[in-house]
Design a protein around this nucleic acid. Structure first.
Lengths: 141, 141
DNA sequence: TGACATCCAATGCGCGTGCATGTAAGTTTC
DNA sequence: GAAACTTACATGCACGCGCATTGGATGTCA
């Protein structure tokens, strides 16, 4: 039983690694090439964008966004800085708690997000529906 | 059907991200803390070690190792340099093709690998057998 | 043999990340 | 209300990564 478990676990891990690397590499490449967005940056837009729908009024606190993604607090801070410099997002002080920052999509940010969404979805469908299609990518090692 | 596919794909991707991040973060932390090894470094030892068994004579070319892992050629080169500095691995010229380098485990490298293997396996079992156990890690975002 | 393309590995470089720390603001305790 | 603690975010720093380039070794073709 031990050996059996080992084999299963190793195989499962290999499979997870394969899917993760192929998918995230292609996501990164496609989003960068077509929309000038890193994957982390897109993920922030995704969190803001999917809640906001068509009106650009949705706000989220940094802490809440952090809780939704696998990114350290410092990395998120810098990612948001990049998005802010690109004009896709604005920081706004919180009325109640002046330690906190609200984050909002700008119209330009919403536009960029909507443009990138199909690219994101397409890569996911490609790699997660047909395992055979998710062959080793040519870039990203 | 389109919406259904989308939901499935997004859920599947979230799940993959969760498992990948939790597992690789804990692997990294455990291997670093208990055996002073990075994950990439361990993976190189794994490729060399599992083929070599008990005799330390197994050789592999850089290119072949690269093909087995998700690491760029340059990253592998530096990872091997670190392993070499730590005395866990030796580079040796290839007889047939002097462009290539053979890589070998040193006795110390084999020992380190054997010591780290149970740690590696334990983390894999923890995160890949019982999904509930793979809760969000406290470190690594 | 000489010129050119190919292949393997190392290295310069910039970037994004996590950890540790700093700063400011809120909370608790007395 | 002052001191001690906690929380939210930014920043200094070191590190590992991928990309592009380099350098050396091989193969190919005339």
């Amino acid at each position: 039983m031990e050996a059996g478990t080992d084999v299963d676990v190793c195989t499962k891990w290999s499979e997870t690694l394969r899917v993760y690397h192929n998918t995230s590499c292609e996501l990164e490449n496609e989003l960068q090439a077509k929309h000038d967005l890193g994957l982390s940056e897109f993920e922030v837009l995704l969190i803001l964008g999917r809640a906001c729908g068509e009106q650009a009024g949705y706000k989220a606190r940094m802490k809440d966004i952090e809780a939704e993604m696998y990114l350290s607090q410092s990395a998120l801070s810098r990612t948001v800085t990049r998005l802010e410099k690109a004009g896709l997002v604005t920081r706004a002080a919180c009325d109640f708690d002046r330690r906190a920052n609200f984050l909002m999509l700008t119209p330009s940010g919403l536009e960029r997000f909507e443009a990138a969404k199909p690219t994101h979805r397409a890569v996911l469908v490609k790699h997660l529906t047909d395992p055979a299609a998710s062959a080793r990518a040519e870039t990203c090692a």
